[in-house]
């Protein structure tokens, strides 16, 4: 693999948390200062390693949320029940703390500004994180092709990047599964096939499609999307909770 061979060996880099922002009651965005960060592609992730004082270590992968080319290294972490790494990063870590990172990693679930095609993003819960990197990359590049987001989330308080999603206006649709915001006509519930059809780019426009979320959600969305005529070859999926690459 000539391409891989030209890349440096993967090593752990020390990183300092320079900013911790609360995104919701269960998720935080952490900005990392990584010396010599080579830049990343939208959709990539990093491995994060924590080391306790007695030498115990734990490693988990987290999606990058910051735009490619921004120079920023930001991950958004949602707590998982009993998750030793996520609980620390979301609830305990403060600016000035240290972690180690390895990456960026992954070259499948990625979007580059060189892709001229329309893009449909479909997120379930915190599956929105790598898709937000794509949206930010798309936005800061002033990319001419449409990029749309369909975002399924349990309730309004769990919406990540709420301000940015709102600014996307008609390019983003947020549907709530458990509690709808007051004053909305749609009762909370799972995203229906008719809603997918209504709120996504038509298959005839041949968009690149990225789907990320919990397994059940992703499986349901993939069935709907292929049923609407999207070419399976143009759909990339990342099942969630655990990383899906591979």
């Amino acid at each position: 693999m000539a391409r891989a061979a030209t890349l440096p060996r993967l090593t752990w880099q020390s990183a300092t948390l320079t900013q911790v922002r609360r995104e919701s009651s269960t998720a935080s965005t952490l900005r990392l200062d990584v010396a010599g960060w080579p830049g990343h592609r939208a959709g990539q992730h990093v491995d994060v390693r924590l080391t306790a004082a007695d030498g115990y270590t734990a490693v988990r992968p987290y999606s990058l949320a910051s735009a490619a080319g921004s120079g920023l290294v930001e991950i958004t972490v949602a707590t998982t029940p009993g998750g030793e790494v996520s609980t620390y990063l979301v609830n305990d870590a403060v600016a000035g703390n240290h972690v180690e990172v390895r990456g960026p990693l992954g070259s499948w679930f990625v979007w580059d500004v060189s892709d001229p095609d329309p893009v449909q993003l479909v997120a379930g819960g915190s599956g929105v994180v790598p898709l937000m990197s794509m949206l930010r990359t798309h936005g800061s590049a002033g990319h001419p092709a449409p990029m749309r987001l369909l975002y399924s989330v349990s309730d309004p308080e769990q919406v990540l990047y709420a301000d940015e999603v709102e600014q996307l206006a008609h390019a983003a649709t947020v549907l709530h599964t458990r509690h709808s915001p007051p004053g909305t006509a749609r009762p909370p519930g799972r995203v229906t096939p008719a809603e997918v059809e209504e709120h996504t780019l038509p298959a005839t426009s041949r968009p690149s499609v990225f789907v990320c979320g919990p397994t059940g959600f992703v499986e349901a969305m993939l069935t709907v999307l292929t049923g609407l005529g999207h070419d399976p070859e143009r759909i990339r999926a990342e099942r969630y909770g655990e990383r899906s690459s591979p």
Binding site: V218, P232, I235, R236, A237, R239, E242, S245, P246
Partner: peptide, 9 residues
């Protein structure tokens, strides 16, 4: 048992 795949099933 997480499900890991690159695309549709």
């Amino acid at each position: 048992f997480p499900v890991m795949s690159a695309g549709p099933t």
